[in-house]
Design a protein around this nucleic acid. Sequence first.
DNA 1: CACTTGACCTGTCCGC
DNA 2: TGCGGACAGGTCAAGT
Length: 288
Amino acid sequence: MPELPEVETVRRGLSQLIIGKEIKSENHDTEKGFPNAPDDVKHFLIGASIIEVRRRAKVLMIDLSTGYSLLIHLKMTGQLVFVGETRFGAGHPNDSLVNELPDKSTRVTLSFEDGSKLFFNDQRKFGWMKLLPTIEIPNISFMQKVGPEPLSSDFMPNDFIQRLARRPKTNIKAALLDQSVVAGIGNIYADESLWGAKIHPKRLVSSLTEDEMKVLYTEMRVVMNLAVEKGGSSNHTYVNAEGKKGSYMDFARVFRREGLACPRCGTTIEKLRVAGRGTHICPFCQTI
DNA sequence: CACTTGACCTGTCCGC
DNA sequence: TGCGGACAGGTCAAGT
């Protein structure tokens, strides 16, 4: 699922909902839900309070008062849904959701002192939750190799160009999906950004002009900013921390719009396969 | 080494 | 309505 805008939306929601709460109990099912959970994981969690919720690329970090952090990757179908005791009124559309959790996709449940709960659900079980000392987070291999945050104010066009130059012989879509080039872009926003920049996803990085890469830099940031503003995209399973869907798909220009008209030129949008992923283009605006 | 492809899982949708 | 196959927002390991 979740690309940067979705994970950021979850982060913002959780910041409002769980900071300051104390963990009362923890439950997890298979090793899939909490792969490196030590036998005494409960010892590290129970009694700890949430002090911060951070994000880097598509990884969420929940910092605890004990000096440990929970790291979470939602992969394709992960959800972090908070359910408070009195959050929804009777008849609220989300009542059903509340009543359904936990469900068979629930992998980890954190229960707080006040009776509220945080559910880590993951239908396809690709996601993970890990526990490690907060101070060690910057040293893990992922943090060492992940690229810059695309929306960071100190991420400049030349940074983007120099990082793309490290993958000259691959196509631009694969390069955008490479988390060591830029952090947080996935299939939806790669397609949307390339459409915005009028660049065919199969173009080799080495074939791009400096101007094209600068336009792509700008379009990527426009797309990501809009997606964050709209609370992300919900194709299937994605929901935010309150169990609500994002609305970016209402604004998508090419993603999942094959057979429809390109909003720029009216040509019918096509779907193809690039870098092993379903890929959407306007064949008139984006040529090889 | 750089790059591409399959595997990891479950659920859904589409064509026969 | 049943069944097989393709596909789904991400990342690795394995293969070329």
